[in-house]
Design a protein around this nucleic acid. Structure first.
Lengths: 341, 341
DNA sequence: CTGAAAGCGCTTACAG
DNA sequence: CTGAAAGCGCTTACAG
């Protein structure tokens, strides 16, 4: 049924080696032979077989996509999905297909990512950050396989990473609130162990210093980036002795939760409390009032991740990490502007 | 560097055939040999190579994921992403990894999905519906490769499909509005060429008949499932001679657009116009008022798609299509209930 | 410019 | 219970 290079060779009356050369655009083939063979390939609809090709060449044209951290948590994560979407477009244009590892398969004890990468002979990997990174990720990034981390600082010989300049994200948020007259600014962070959350926290603290605003320990609260945790963190802030007039949440989802808590307390936004999120999810436009937020440039991150990885695969780069500029999106939740951007 | 079955065999002092048998859980190997070999595999961290394995067996343990229709449009589509996420979990548990085809690669003229499936030797495919289905999809579904369509009616020898019972979705929406006293119910459909949109339209029309409500041609409008088109469709409805008191939109996103149009006109929801969407996106909970909608059971669809495909691959089924029951989620936009479900 | 032959790393009858 | 050998479908020096 399946037609192979052997059949093509026979039909064309040439050797398999010659067909292979034509398939791979070698120069040293006569035009007439090339044409004869190409015609037959055309007619038969022949396509080479991936496994045989890869087995012989060691080049798979496959990029592994790995969600690090908790099993399978984040395939549909609103931020990462956009990054991966953009990554897919760019890397696809370069001739790669994407292999999504299912975390369930090798789960006898450890998910052995390195082994699986070798098994499939992927040319490179993109690793998406998650909570609670496994040791098998370290193994992978220290290996010969080119890896790019998204929001995940990979430092191996053949790896690199890319993320938003999170320090600046906080700076922009705090600056915006400061310019609107706020001096009592609280912060809702991610999990204490989250690198991203911590960079944003440092950015927040640093910005307060910049503007000479004293820092209050009880105004730094922690969540887990999801809505419910923002709700609880905000409740905590509302119960404090002194209530802040503005809140910067390290994720939009937590901001949504915070909005709910503020409402339930009978306070209004932005009159009583201004709030600003981080990420620029779609839902920001739909909440009431529309959420002012710091946008991460998801498309750009994905595109750059693809380019970085390509360079890494081809051994063509010394650049190993990139920071992407965040952008402040002003909507109604801080009171300056109630319309769309 | 890379260790192969040959090395393992030599180290263990047995043949490659024996190692292979042990690797594949054959019965007829002595316990002592098995142990000896397993120990060495353990120590060396040996893993078989995928391409060699597949080349020899014809079984790849890879499932192709194809977004049919317009190039690359919907990887981050809010409905399908949830379906695929659930599919990934289930199929992953069955030992498969996922190969996402990038639409860019083979784009010399046609994206030849069938050829690519054979190239990678995928064991099966899941096809996600989109607009404007290509002929290469037909080729695939008529082939020897097992395929499951999501919202896409595949009828080939080795294919099947799964979707929400969309007729019932409309019935539930109309019934809900009817019970709230509405008799002037308009419908915002998807593109006229969309199967899903049309089934929902028929369901809408049929339900009106059920309740003896006369159907008005000008109250059936068309969008493209996205927000902007819902906005425009609603504007059209608002300009009509007679304005409906309730609207059923074939997607949540169009419902969001409709809400915007209603607001701009100075009307309020649900007092002046009740609105009900379809899908149950996350954002439904955040719009004001929270959107009543017909939920598609995305997790269930994904899970069933995985099971159907597995059965198809193993040649174990006569069932070729499944309808999943939709569920009405009552929120505030029709006035009965203003809280969360 | 073309082809014979060995090799990529595994599996599978088959013989013993 | 074990192994020799052929095969999966391609590529790549190498020789001519």
């Amino acid at each position: 049924m399946k037609i192979t290079i052997k059949e093509i060779a026979e039909m064309a009356g040439v050797s398999r080696a010659t067909v292979s050369k034509i398939l791979n655009d070698y120069e040293d083939v006569s035009e007439s032979t090339r044409k004869k063979v190409m015609d037959i390939i055309e007619q038969t609809g022949y396509r080479p077989t991936y496994t045989a090709h890869t087995l012989a060449t060691k080049k798979s044209n496959l990029i592994g996509v790995i969600y690090a951290g908790k099993i399978n948590a984040s395939f549909n994560h609103p931020f990462f999905i956009e990054v991966v979407n953009s990554f897919k477009k760019t890397i696809g244009g370069l001739g790669y297909d994407l292999l999504f590892f299912s975390n369930e398969k090798f789960t006898k004890g450890e998910e052995d990512y390195l082994a699986r990468c070798r098994y499939y002979q992927v040319d490179g990997c993109i690793l998406i950050n998650g909570d609670d990174i496994q040791s098998s990720i370290l193994e992978l990034e220290q290996s010969e396989i080119p890896c790019i981390g998204v929001d995940l600082q990979l430092t191996g010989e053949n790896s690199g990473y890319i993320m938003t300049d999170n320090h600046k994200a906080s700076a922009k948020a705090v600056e915006h609130l400061y310019l609107l007259g706020h001096r009592d600014i609280a912060y809702i962070s991610g999990t204490p162990s989250s690198t991203i959350g911590n960079i944003r926290k440092e950015g927040y603290i640093h910005s307060l210093q910049t503007y000479g605003i004293p820092q209050r320990e009880e105004w730094i609260t922690y969540g887990d980036f999801y809505e419910e945790s923002g709700y609880r963190a905000m409740q905590q802030l509302l119960q404090g002795e002194r209530v802040p007039t503005a809140v910067f949440a390290a994720s939009d989802q937590m901001a949504f939760g915070a909005i709910r808590a503020i409402r339930e307390k009978g306070l209004s936004i932005p009159q009583d409390i201004a709030i600003i999120g981080c990420d620029d999810l779609d839902a920001c436009r739909y909440v009431d009032p529309p959420l002012t937020t710091v946008r991460q440039d998801k498309a750009r991150i994905g595109k750059l991740a693809a380019r970085l990885l390509e360079d890494l695969i081809n051994g063509e780069t010394k650049v190993r990490s990139l920071m992407v500029e965040p952008e402040l999106i002003v909507r109604g939740s801080c009171g300056e502007n109630s319309g769309e951007e």
